[in-house]
Design a protein around this nucleic acid. Sequence first.
DNA 1: ATTCTCACCTGTTAGC
DNA 2: TGCTAACAGGTGAGAA
Length: 278
Amino acid sequence: MPELPEVETVVRGLRAGVTGRRISRVAHVSQHLLQRDPGLRSIAGDRFQHFDRRGKFIIGRMESGRNLLIHLRMSGRLLLRPKRERRDKHDHLVLTLDGGDRKLVFRDVRKFGLVEFCNGDADSRLSSLGPEATGITTGQLRQLLQGSRRPIKAFLLDQTKVAGLGNIYVDESLYRAGVNPAELTTNLSPEQVRKLARAIRDILKKAIKLMGTTFDSYRATDGEPGRFASYLKVYHKEGNRCSICSETITKTRLAGRGTHFCPNCQKLVDNQKHEVGK
DNA sequence: ATTCTCACCTGTTAGC
DNA sequence: TGCTAACAGGTGAGAA
C-alpha cells in the first residue's frame, strides 16, 4: 500500500535518522534479496550520504558513489529499531549502524519489495517514470493523456505516465474530481482534466502532511501509522453514504483492482449525444 | 506500440 | 471448529 505520501514519509525518516551513518555490519540478509543482488553484503562499511525519492522508489546515495534502490511494493517497511531487538521472521535486511543504538531493518511480509544496488538514475526503472504526481499540472496531464485510450484509473496507476499514485490515491483523486474511474481517457473534458490535476496535487499534499495513510501494514521509520485514513472518502468505504450526495459508495473491479466510487457524483460522460431522447 | 492479464508472496477473512 | 478459496495491491513479464 505504500504510495507516494507513505514513501515520502519514509524517506524523511531516513534523512533524519540514517543520513551520514556508516554501516558497521550486515546483521542479516535474506536469500531472495541476495539472489537479486549477490553483492548486497558489500554495503557493509559504506555510508549513507543522502536519500532521494522518485515515484515510489527510494534511492540511497552511498559514500562509495553507489546507489541503493529500494521499493516497498505492498508490505515493505524500513524501520529504525533498537540494536538488541530480536529479528522478526519477516526482516530481510538488517543493517547495524555506527554510532547510536539503532539498526535499519527492511521488513517485508510478502517479499515483493526490492533492495538492490542499481546504476543510478539511468536505471530504466527510474528513467521510465513519468513526472511526479505531487506537482502534476493541468497542461502536463493533458499532454500525457494524448494518444492514450484506456480507463482513466488504469492510466493514473501507470507509473510511466504519472509517478507515485497507487490504488488509494487514484480512487480518492477521481472522487474529488468527480470523474468515473472507468471513463476513457479520450472522453475527459478539459474541465475534468483540470479538476483531476488539482485533486491529485491537493490530496497528496495533505496526505504527506499527515504522514500517509495506514490502512493495514504501512508504518513510518519510527513505527508510527499515517493519519490520512480518516480523510478517505471512498477507499474501503463501500456501503457508506457519499458525503456530498448521500448515494451509496460502490465497489467494483477495474484494472484488476478494487475500485471505489460514488455512482452519482462520478457519472460517466455521456458521449452519445445523438442518442439523447432515444 | 499500447494495453491487458497474470505471477510473484503471505496473512487475513469470508464462506461452507 | 476446521478447512479451502478469495482477497489485498505494485510491478514486470508475457500475451493480446
